[in-house]
Design a protein around this nucleic acid. Structure first.
Lengths: 232, 232
DNA sequence: TCAAAAGTGTTGTTGATACACCCATGA
DNA sequence: TCATGGGTGTATCAACAACACTTTTGA
């Protein structure tokens, strides 16, 4: 008999699931990665990527595993939103679900893996119907993402390592679903000095070309230790 | 055989606990309600009030029940923080814990009930050692409380229905662990017009006496519908 | 009459917003 | 040469912070 059984055995146990709200950005749109469920219940309907917690696995690890199973990606920004535990939330039985949101650079991710799950990207403005309480999770994730983007340099997670300021501005505009003044945006984002301008231009987006920048994580950490707070 | 067993039976089940971070305010201090555990493991140590999720119970309901068991209070402000699920977090076995924080007016609560749990209030500056990851939960709860207080009128939950502006200011100062300018504070808090001044004074705190105010929830809801956002 | 807390407006500073033109390039 | 998106500085306005004296009352 295990210690656990001895002490807590009179209490009920529950299935614990992880659901991932996966955001991506492809130069013009903020997108959400959804999968077509290939198992019951709700087989064939659109859903967030999810999975069940396993013995001996921390919940953060489990979310990471679920994300990796779908995208093939490691070292992804992943943050817990909250637990969802209404009794009727899963039509097939009692499941406590812990929602996480992830930010991925959609260029990187492994299309072949996601094909096996019938995954596809949807614009945040044209989401499909999602099962259970997944819409509520997505709403909450978007609000959280906006809050994080205001005070932490997480937007960069959605872009390639090298990016242009117009790209970055477009990203922020899509996340906040609004427009920003170009000069004010550049001033604010450059002012703390955590973006380093490279001697390279991206010539894709325009004739003139736009300088590439890189996020200087080391510099950011230094400043943060000195009490600096990122703000956009 | 239930539908649940049929569909999800190959997955593991887990104990799910609820832990409540209970904040109170007693005119001079922001306080935390802790209990001395009367069961193993960690019997005799200080802990947050907690309990296990039951079959057929939504997690929010369960948190509410746990809170009521300790305080005897209904209709308490209660908000989920997040789930904690490290594998070794509970020394007696694998338990997923969902943390909630509550705001109660510490005058109201039923001392006799809490005595049966050996509960007591601790100043946020002199917290006892707490078991497991409860300190991390408290830290997170305090940060969340500060954020909520900045943009939602939740501070009033910690005060009696009628309160004075000096009391309210002290509350905010204790929550944010800082001092505010009296005139600026009064201007900001009164400006939106969601506090109604009563024709009564509280004579406890001073010779002169301070006017009592009441939070006008109906007015607040009206303004909120018109797009108003509370800000302090 | 005095000690102790309540109550009240104005000014300076700082951060946010609005705004228009020149530049570099490929077609 | 022209169409397209990239890059730059200043002036105005609003929000925030700093600040000191009068009032009321009970002891």
């Amino acid at each position: 008999m295990t210690k656990e059984k001895h002490l807590y055995s009179r209490h009920s146990k529950f299935l614990v699931a992880l659901d991932c709200i996966i955001f991506g950005f492809d130069t013009h749109e903020l997108k959400l990665l959804c999968i077509k469920r290939d198992f019951e219940p709700e087989k064939g309907k659109w859903s967030l990527m999810g999975g069940f917690l396993r013995e001996g696995e921390a919940i953060d690890q489990a979310a990471d595993r679920v994300l990796r199973e779908l995208t093939g990606l490691e070292d992804i920004y992943l943050e817990q939103l909250q637990a969802y535990g209404e009794t009727g939330r899963d039509s097939a039985g009692r499941v406590i679900s812990i929602a996480y949101y992830a930010l991925i650079n959609s260029v990187k991710f492994d299309k072949s893996i996601s094909d096996t799950y019938s995954a596809s990207w949807f614009s945040m403005h044209q989401l499909p119907d999602l099962i259970f309480d997944h819409h509520a999770m997505v709403d909450k994730a978007l609000r959280r993402l906006r809050r994080r983007c205001k005070t932490q340099p997480v937007g960069f997670e959605l872009l390639p390592e090298k990016f242009t300021l117009p790209q970055l501005q477009t990203l922020y505009e899509k996340i906040f679903d609004t427009g920003f003044d170009k000069r004010n945006f550049r001033r604010k984002i450059l002012e703390p000095g955590v973006l380093v301008k490279l001697d390279e231009k991206d010539m894709e987006g325009s004739r003139k070309g736009a300088f590439l920048y890189k996020f200087d994580k080391q510099r950011y950490d230094e400043l943060t230790n000195e009490g600096f707070n990122f703000q956009i």
